[in-house]
């Protein structure tokens, strides 16, 4: 059964707007562009490190639109005191990456 993506479409729209505001190159944002945005959340760096590991699914050091949405989703969860999981829950893997 097709698992619906945990990121809701209205949240995705919001994340896409942030993604585009960071001037992606070929649809990708490098770590140094994403880093200030995630640091803005005031979350500890080790948490952000784990958020990055989980969202940079292809481990290419950059986030595409979907990976960025996963990162933002995890940051918002952490801000609501939801612990960042050790591994990416299947529902969070973007449909494009399954």
């Amino acid at each position: 059964t097709e698992l619906p993506w945990a990121v809701k479409s209205e949240d995705k729209t919001k994340y896409d707007a942030i993604f585009d505001s960071l001037n992606p190159v070929d649809g990708f944002l490098s770590g140094d562009k994403v880093k200030p945005v995630l640091l803005n959340s005031k979350l500890p760096v080790d948490i952000l490190g784990r958020v990055w590991e989980l969202s940079d699914i292809d481990h290419d050091g950059m986030l595409d639109r979907d990976e960025f949405a996963v990162a933002m989703f995890l940051v918002y969860c952490a801000l609501e005191k939801e612990p960042v999981p050790m591994s990416l829950p299947p529902a969070l893997v973007p449909p494009s990456k399954r």
Binding site: G49, R50, W52, E53, D56, G61, S87
Partner: peptide, 13 residues
Amino acid sequence: QFPTGSSSTNPFL
């Protein structure tokens, strides 16, 4: 997998 986190691709490590 436990994300070990290679600093080469992770800007936070």
